[in-house]
């Protein structure tokens, strides 16, 4: 057990460490852009514009939302490999209600939005429930349980339409991916903000949030001190599944098509964001602000490397190095 003062100190270091890393990365990309401006290659620093920074938020919305659910799961000492597949399954379910390609539109107006949304959120939460029950009741390792769901949900996605994509989605539904509030703020960014805000309250200001930390820190002692660990774990996975549903809605609405290969390997980016953000895969440790900046760092990297014209394979190498580096720094700090 660490003393309260020590843990407060560590957390604040964790918090500022990630922000410093984020600012350093931005400064680096921006500096390289500035050099190009000085060399006369570019007229302005294209990285450091309001539009581009808004774009980065837009681009991290899907991964950010998945990473919120992943943060809860990782803090509970678990992992959820199924988020990418569940995203695809939820998106496909939403699209099957939002499509106009069949020519039959039995409902209109508000139902055109309500049914797809409910279908996706219900599908996501249901997959999460299955994950949660397998982990908490059958005591199967989360890696295995969610690996099963990764395969099953991908298969179900294909089974819905026999492997075909669903397109021609209603404009009402597409608003969730392409709309702008007050003509400026992209809807996915608003969702990202709402999800982070609500999740922050859930994790830091409610009994459930405390229990998630407790279960992840030491499940046995949490149980003996009266926490219903089965229920906490189940709800944690339901929450992650539900957010995969939200992400599925946004990605499908953004691309305008539900594809069977959607979200493939997105779980890795979500885990990367959580780990870069300072959470420990051993459980009990992790913060949503860290995850947010972890997702931002990945977003800035993808955006910056595209802008700087770096080949995609170097992008992979840099991302890989960053993840390992983040964990090394974290483990040395905690040692």
């Amino acid at each position: 057990m660490t003393s309260p003062t020590l843990s407060v100190k560590r957390i604040s270091f964790q918090k500022y460490g990630i922000i410093i890393a984020f600012l350093a990365l931005c400064a680096l990309v921006s500096a390289i852009c500035q050099i190009k401006v000085m060399q006369g290659v570019w007229p302005v620093n294209v990285f450091l514009t309001v539009n581009n920074l808004m774009l980065i938020l837009h681009q991290i919305s899907v991964n950010g939302i998945l990473a919120v659910g992943m943060t809860f799961v990782v803090i509970s000492a678990g992992i959820d490999l199924s988020v990418g597949s569940v995203l695809a399954f939820s998106g496909m379910m939403a699209a099957s209600f939002a499509t106009r390609s069949t020519g039959v539109t039995p409902w209109s107006g508000v139902y055109f939005v309500a049914f797809p949304l409910l279908a996706a959120l219900f599908t996501g939460a249901l997959c999460g429930l299955v994950n949660g029950l397998i982990v908490s009741r059958f005591r199967i390792q989360p890696f295995i349980a969610t690996l099963g769901m990764l395969l099953a949900a991908r298969g179900l996605t294909m089974a819905v339409t026999g492997g075909n994509p669903i397109s021609a989605l209603s404009p009402e539904f597409r608003w969730f991916g392409t709309g702008r509030i007050f003509d400026t703020l992209p809807v996915p960014v608003v969702f990202l903000a709402i999800v982070f805000a609500l999740a922050w309250v859930l994790l830091n200001k409610t009994v459930f949030g405390r229990y998630v930390y407790a279960v992840g820190g030491n499940e046995k002692s949490a149980r003996t001190s009266g926490v219903n660990t089965t229920s906490v774990l189940t709800w944690t996975y339901i929450f992650a599944g539900f957010l995969s549903g939200v992400a599925g809605i946004i990605l499908t609405a953004k691309t305008g098509s539900a594809q069977t290969s959607a979200g493939t390997s997105y779980e890795l980016d979500a885990i990367a964001a959580v780990v870069i953000g300072g959470a420990s895969l051993a459980g009990g440790v992790g913060r949503l602000t860290g995850t947010f900046f972890g997702a931002l760092i990945i977003g800035v990297m993808n955006n910056g490397l595209d802008i700087l014209g770096v080949e995609s394979f170097y992008q992979s190498i840099i991302k890989g190095a960053l993840i390992v580096l983040a964990v090394i720094i974290d483990s040395r700090r905690q040692a």
Partner: peptide
Amino acid sequence: ERKTANWSRAEALDLMQNWLSKHP
């Protein structure tokens, strides 16, 4: 510019957004 988006619509969406940002 020329870069891969691995046949994927979602990847190409992000890539093109970044290019539009770079070459307004």
